[in-house]
Design a protein around this nucleic acid. Sequence first.
DNA 1: TATAATATCACCCAAACGGGTACTATCACA
DNA 2: TGTGATAGTACCCGTTTGGGTGATATTATA
Lengths: 210, 210
Amino acid sequence: MTHTPSIKICIIEDDALILKSLQQVLNNAEGYSVTGTFFSAEAALENLKEHHPDVLLLDIDLPGMSGIEAIPKLHKLQPELNIVMLTVHEESEIVFSALRQGAVGYLVKGSNSKFLLQGISEVFDGGAPMSPSIARQVIASFTMSKETSLSDRELEVLQKLSNGTNNKQIAEDLFVSTNTVKAHIKNIYKKLHVHSRAEAVSKAIKKGWI
Amino acid sequence: MTHTPSIKICIIEDDALILKSLQQVLNNAEGYSVTGTFFSAEAALENLKEHHPDVLLLDIDLPGMSGIEAIPKLHKLQPELNIVMLTVHEESEIVFSALRQGAVGYLVKGSNSKFLLQGISEVFDGGAPMSPSIARQVIASFTMSKETSLSDRELEVLQKLSNGTNNKQIAEDLFVSTNTVKAHIKNIYKKLHVHSRAEAVSKAIKKGWI
DNA sequence: TATAATATCACCCAAACGGGTACTATCACA
DNA sequence: TGTGATAGTACCCGTTTGGGTGATATTATA
């Protein structure tokens, strides 16, 4: 019997050899226990809740529903579940979209077992295991681009637009006339090639300007 | 003389003792060389280009312009510069906004020199050094939350709103009357507690719904 | 079975918006 | 010196929007 409660792990992996190997490593290590294994996302979605895992290792390349597609469905089933992707090679675009779907990290299959255990512990402790290059891409995507053709005043107005502020209120906030506000908005529309507040706000947020 | 070119490092740090210590560690290590040091962001902005650093270590708490404010200005000066923040304690909100401004990682002052050198190398090699808890927060912020109280139809309408589509066009796209579209929009407003298209779009995008 | 949520449609009205034109004034840059 | 970008102001006009109230049908869930 273990002294500290083990991290309960489920694994979705269609390759029986890899699954076996993962299972062996995890069950032989102190503090980790595999409570369930599945060969497909479909199977996991049906029975996962019975195994109440802390961490789920999820293969990306699965027959039927892909690992990435499965993420939102698994989260719906068990919202607080920490999903860690398993990949063969570290292809950034795929890993990236997995993270976007809600995975908290990923592990490369075949890396040594120390890495595996460390990664799982990191996830359990609230971390997010990933390689340096993926980490950088994540940071970059979340950074604001700042390359805008808008003037400071226009950005200020745009910010107000995103709060749903109307022209009259913006005018009061900026101590100018509503006509001035309208003029700024018209210029914003010209620069962004849009024709409404909603579209301007959408574009600006997606570009990270506001 | 060194055999491989050293990583050129500049440091902005107002505390002379810490600066000295950093400088010593880096200059004594193989493959790292400090090419410039500054006591303030203002000083760095004037002279940084002469030292063409690969990596810049930037203190967050600086007299005058803060390290975070300095990031965009430094990037304007040298767009490809890798900026790494130096912090005393790891306060997530501050680190977080530094990353948002364009820093690629951070190092905790006083952690052992192995960590420092490793972090700098990681940055130089395209990585992003940060602690597990910050990594998780970054991942989380960039993940779509998907927890929405909106119906599928309402999300569909919201998507159209973000494109700047007007009610008439939305009605045509969805094969319903403009009255129906208006009804959906009213319901969206009620659920999101907003009063305009722009505000609804802003909220939805920031929550990752569209 | 009843109640809530969703989706559909209708009418009204005041307020807000988008687009057009036109006029200053400042500041930087060529 | 003048040309462009930014900021501020003004007026007009037709269209769109937001908010109100009310109604029907379907589906899901308690």
